[in-house]
């Protein structure tokens, strides 16, 4: 590896290769090496701390924009650690010539997303670079949260028999951004699902939820594979139970994508102890972001380290994470 390729930013196995072979040679803090969505800070209160950068192209897309994405991305990374998002920092890198009116639109969405999520932006920074040295606007957010789940949300507690749940339809964000680019002559009226998930996730705080993750870049396939990698359990999902909207399936068919690889920004994959699974579904369905919540599979000891899907044809297949970039700059 001598050059960074776009594929290294895709969130799939190429990204993992860059992290393991380059980053981790230099940055080796034990908290960082846990590779969670957020770091668990030491101490009795044990806060959660995370950061994320946003370079989505175009900055405005059906259902959202880079501002809403920047708040939701970080808030959701905290939420899936079972932590209530409290404080955010935000940093802007803006290209010379970026319209102030567009900046105002982005800021308005940031304010709305903050209100919806309950988090406060308490520090901020702006840099401007020469025209052509960036593409419009990039945003970084970091966030601190307070763990409130009764039982620790930690993948080491996942066990065979646990249920795998999702809160609604898959693939909306990726397809919305893709069609917003007008590159493919596609006109699918798909809106991004970008939304802050804390309000939904907190409903399950009293239940036994050993694992949550928002299936963003790399989609559901990436999330489940990260969960089972090097573990003594695998995941088994059922194709007929997966909520994949017709429009998403149609675009994926056309472009040769696997819907399980497409990014989501308002979804959470929950692994819930079987005894609490039905209760979790009931709680999730009471929230607007969880109306489509359903059980899509289970944790199994039969094929450790692997994600397998029971297909509609009555057979089964392996579900692998995507290899490189499916779509660069999706978030």
């Amino acid at each position: 590896m001598d050059k960074v390729l776009l594929a290294h930013g895709g969130g799939g196995s190429k990204s993992a290769e860059l992290v393991e072979r380059v980053f981790q040679r230099f940055l080796r803090d034990p908290l960082l090496l846990e590779m969670g969505d957020a770091a668990r800070l030491p101490g009795r209160s044990g806060g959660a701390f995370t950061t994320d950068s946003f370079v989505v192209r175009p900055a405005f897309f059906p259902g959202g924009d880079i501002g809403r994405l920047a708040v939701c991305g970080t808030v959701n990374d905290l939420a899936v650690m079972g932590a209530e998002p409290l404080y955010l920092s935000i940093g802007f890198i803006i290209e010379e010539g970026f319209p102030v009116r567009d900046l105002e639109r982005v800021l308005a969405s940031i304010a709305i997303a903050c209100r919806q999520s309950g988090a406060r932006i308490v520090c901020a920074d702006t840099k401007v670079v020469e025209r052509g040295k960036a593409d419009g606007i990039y945003i970084n957010t970091s966030g601190i949260g307070r763990p409130v789940f009764k039982k620790p949300v930690h993948a080491s507690r996942v066990k065979p028999g646990d249920a795998v749940l999702i809160n609604g339809p898959l693939g909306l964000h990726g397809i919305a951004v893709l069609t917003a680019r007008n590159e493919f002559g596609l006109k699918a009226s798909v809106k991004s699902d970008v939304a802050p998930l804390w309000g939904l996730i907190r409903k399950c705080r009293a239940l036994d939820v050993p694992f949550m993750r928002d299936p963003t870049r790399g989609g559901l396939a990436q999330t489940l594979n990260e969960l089972v990698r090097k573990r003594r359990f695998g995941a088994r999902i059922v194709e007929a139970e997966l909520p994949i909207p017709k429009k998403v399936a149609a675009v994926c068919d056309l472009l040769g994508f696997d819907p399980l690889h497409v990014a989501n920004e308002g979804k959470v994959v929950m692994v819930v102890a079987e005894k609490d699974a039905e209760k979790a579904l009931r709680l999730l369905r009471r929230h607007p972001l969880g109306k489509g919540a359903r059980r899509i599979g289970a944790i199994t000891a039969v094929h450790p380290g692997r994600v397998v899907m029971a297909t509609r044809a009555g057979s089964e297949r392996i579900v692998m994470p995507p290899v490189g970039e499916i779509l660069p700059r999706i978030c």
């Binding site: 040769g256 696997d258 297909t311 044809a313 057979s315 089964e316 297949r317």
Partner: peptide, 14 residues
């Protein structure tokens, strides 16, 4: 495209 579809549906096992 058939190769991929066959393996995606698991038809080779049927």
């Amino acid at each position: 495209t058939h190769t991929v579809a066959i393996r995606r549906f698991g038809i080779q096992k049927l």
